[in-house]
Computed example of a mutant assay.
Amino acid sequence: MLEGKVGLVTGASRGVGKGIALGLGEQGATVYVTGRTETGGAQPTPLPGTVQETAAEVTALGGRGVAIACDHRDDEQTRRAVRQVVDEAGRLDVLVNNVWGGYEYFWDGTPFWEEAGFWTQPIERWDSAFQAGVRAHYVTTVAAAPTMVTQGSGLIVNVSSEGAVKTDTGVAYGAAKAATDHLVACMAHELRDHGVTAVSLYPGLVRTESVLRAAEYIDLSDSESPLFVGRAVAALAADPDVTRHTGQVVSTAGLAEEYAFTDPG
């Protein structure tokens, strides 16, 4: 159980981030969730989900959810979000860097075949993956690390993917995910002596709202629910010996085998 523990999950209006927030919440944690989509606000994407709704679901599961509207492309908004967590809760035990960018072609009307090669894509796709993804992970962790170092404990999880090591997932995406993994390895090296653990997490194919929207084109027979990813993070957060994983890439499937949690479906 994670009662008394405090987590921050970025990019948690929906999808994997929401699943991670719920996974922490069902174990009793206080979970701060960030996202751009607010109740009553304009949707950045044509998908359901808001930070307020996620926070309410965390609370309904037995945790305590707190919503923070934040665009992590803005460094000052990111710093303010972390300050709010520390000021209100007095500690930070789990940071999950999930927010990402570079997916705009799903929503801006660009036919997928028009961006079939990296040379056909606007440079903004690269910039978005690194600014809203890698840079946001770095800035959030820079803001959170002093609290964890002072505590002498903490878990940092960067949501990554096999795209970091594969060559068929797109140049910008693959390069950004590889950068995320190396970011974790280097952070773990510097944080090890302070009792803070950092890992990269590879989910499988997750049944997010975006994936389900395209379900007729995707084989979902070996897919995962977002909450399954959340249970992976919760298992790591509850492990008193989690430092043995620091600097490593871990997968949801591997963690399920190690910690014996299941996918609710």
Rank of each mutant, 00 (worst) to 15 (best):
H72F: 02
Y202S: 08
M148V: 01
Y259G: 10
A145V: 08
T30S: 05
G23I: 13
K5T: 02
E26T: 14
V58M: 12
A176E: 12
V159T: 14
L191A: 12
H189V: 08
V99R: 03
N98E: 07
E190P: 05
A42Y: 00
Y173M: 11
R125T: 14
G90T: 03
A237G: 04
T54K: 10
L212R: 14
A29R: 00
D193E: 13
F106Q: 13
A116H: 10
G133Y: 06
A55Q: 11
T197D: 05
W107E: 12
I218F: 07
D193M: 05
K177S: 12
Y259F: 15
I123M: 15
H72V: 03
V82F: 04
K177M: 12
M1I: 01
T120P: 00
A12K: 06
L155W: 07
G163L: 06
I20D: 01
L8F: 07
L220G: 10
A172H: 13
G109T: 13
A132M: 09
L2E: 04
H72G: 02
E53F: 08
P44A: 04
A215P: 03
K18M: 11
A129I: 04
T180Q: 11
G40R: 00
V165Q: 01
A89W: 02
G265T: 15
A178C: 10
I123A: 14
A256Y: 11
K166E: 10
L201Y: 04
K18N: 12
V86S: 00
Q77V: 04
G174P: 13
V249P: 00
W113I: 08
D74F: 00
G102V: 09
T37G: 02
F106M: 14
E258M: 07
G25L: 09
Q27F: 08
T50H: 11
F228D: 15
R213M: 14
